[in-house]
Design a protein around this nucleic acid. Sequence first.
DNA 1: GTAATTTTCGACCGACTGGTCGGATTTAAA
DNA 2: TTTAAATCCGACCAGTCGGTCGAAAATTAC
Lengths: 212, 212
Amino acid sequence: MEKYLKQLTQKELGKMTNIAKAAAKLFNEKGYLETSMDDISVAAKLSKGGIYHYYSSKNEILYFISTNFMGLLLKDLEQELEQIQDPFEKIQFIISRHIGFYIKHISEAKTTIHEGHLLPPAYFKIIAEQEKQYHQIVSHVLSDFFGGHISKDQLKVVTFILFGTCNGIYFWYDPKRSMTPEELSGIIRDILCKGLLGFEVKTKTKMSGQEH
Amino acid sequence: MEKYLKQLTQKELGKMTNIAKAAAKLFNEKGYLETSMDDISVAAKLSKGGIYHYYSSKNEILYFISTNFMGLLLKDLEQELEQIQDPFEKIQFIISRHIGFYIKHISEAKTTIHEGHLLPPAYFKIIAEQEKQYHQIVSHVLSDFFGGHISKDQLKVVTFILFGTCNGIYFWYDPKRSMTPEELSGIIRDILCKGLLGFEVKTKTKMSGQEH
DNA sequence: GTAATTTTCGACCGACTGGTCGGATTTAAA
DNA sequence: TTTAAATCCGACCAGTCGGTCGAAAATTAC
């Protein structure tokens, strides 16, 4: 972790990214714990000692992968959302962007989702903070969409369901198979949005109806 | 694996279930690989050798947990579904039952979902077969619901989305917190069903519309 | 050229893991 | 009470892993 205090040269960062890419692929295929440093060193075409020249631990590789991915996911998101007025369109945009993004960086995404919790607390907290930030941005859009007519608990659940549904695809989606990311993204977006619209009606009716 | 060829006495099965319960809790908390046989022996209040008297490997414990859970999930499902006529009501029933079931056996459910793939192929195939069976039952109901007006690919995707959405809750749901399983189940059911109804309309329109 | 620095190597270490085994202890049978 | 069988124990084994280190090789500076 101390490594990041010193300024990294472009060359160093390039090497680190190479190692991280090879590692992410392995973590995704076999899992973090099942992947040994020897495996990584073979995949990265560098000796084990060579890897430890750039990373001080296996954990640090995982951390590098996850924090870089989350950073990329957060980058420019808020500016992009500002360009859209309608909250419903914003949600559609978020779902499409999210799925497209995760499919494009599928190894890093799956690694972050499935292995991030293996990090020691000091590392994990930073990732969790980034996830929370992303979460809050989306949650805020959803809140706008429901026009405030939704409880905090419900909002939280709906947000989690949205992410859960999107992230669930990485258990089974295989880009080599028939469906393109765009088609898939479209189906999920349609189901979720229709579901949310229905949910909205129900919530708002309940609120304005003030049943006996 | 050979163990299961011989008939188990009630007493043996009880002991095995005890060990499995303790193990499932640990697997769920720390993960399969992070849990050592020593951990299990402490939790099950039995020495390591004692455990190996009932199970021939760590894998076999995981297998026992998963196959038992899947068996329980499949038990009586088809008969229960036969009691319902309307396909839409069947879907609602499946979602509620699924979530309720998983929350009730949360350690075993999460273990099966998240750790099952760590089993060697010979074991995993049996679990996968059970999952496939469950999958097909649900897929069939969905197919009925869409009245056949849905492609095989789409049906597959929709089925996966349904399970993905339901199973996503285990990443974050905490039964000790505010929302009850019934409330949560209701929200998910509503969103998904509304989404599916919307999806149905779109699909059917597309089909009957026969655009140029 | 040579000296200094960075990068790379791979043999090696200690810790830990899943699994074994001979025997101690408990239970059941006679 | 004796004997046999089932149950349980924990020291031990072989193998794997993350990580170290001293030195070789490559690069850069002079």
